[in-house]
């Protein structure tokens, strides 16, 4: 649908823009995705207030993660997370078998080296959302075969 694609296009243009910026400032081939990650963080932080408005208070951390996998994901990616695993000690692995930003351009190993660019925003989005719910975390992503993607959430306990 046309209205959905607008977000996808904006997302890919933001990445292109960020890459262009770092290329001109650094002059090196190194890719700096922290800007994209931060954009995701700010968006995730703000959207969380809206999304949790109609929700009862979360019971615990796992309850929060389930919310991320279902409602949060549906709101942004129009589908739910396919698999959630946890070691019950603060590590959560979210697997999406058809990640929205990757389905458009690859179905296998082509462009695999560029995949990190297209998951940085989402890493920030999850981190920002959790930060607003008072859970500090580190979010990393892993892409082995597109379009599936795994997000690792390490909750930081102090």
């Amino acid at each position: 649908m046309a209205d959905d694609i607008v977000f996808d296009l904006l997302h890919s243009e933001i990445i292109n823009y960020a890459l262009e910026q770092t290329k001109t400032t650094n002059g090196s081939k190194e890719v700096d995705l922290s800007v994209v990650e931060y954009i995701g963080f700010a968006a995730g932080y703000k959207i969380m207030e809206r999304l949790t408005r109609e929700w009862p208070r979360f019971k615990d951390e796992l309850d929060t993660m389930k919310f991320i996998c279902t409602d949060f994901w549906t709101c942004i990616y129009k589908k739910q997370i396919d698999n959630l695993r946890t070691n019950h000690q603060g590590v959560y692995v979210l697997q999406d078998n058809a990640f929205r930003f990757l389905t458009n351009f690859s179905n296998g190993h082509q462009y695999l080296e560029y995949a990190p660019r297209y998951v940085a925003y989402t890493c920030g989005l999850i981190r920002g959302g959790l930060a607003n719910l008072c859970i500090n975390s580190i979010v990393t992503a892993e892409v082995q075969s597109m379009p599936s993607c795994k997000f690792h959430i390490h909750v930081q306990r102090t």
């Binding site: 969380m48 207030e49 949790t52 408005r53 929700w55 208070r57 979360f58 607003n132 719910l133 008072c134």
Partner: peptide
């Protein structure tokens, strides 16, 4: 005095 606490602890 009435209170309301959001999920984000506001």
């Amino acid at each position: 005095i009435y209170g309301y606490v959001t999920n984000t602890r506001i």
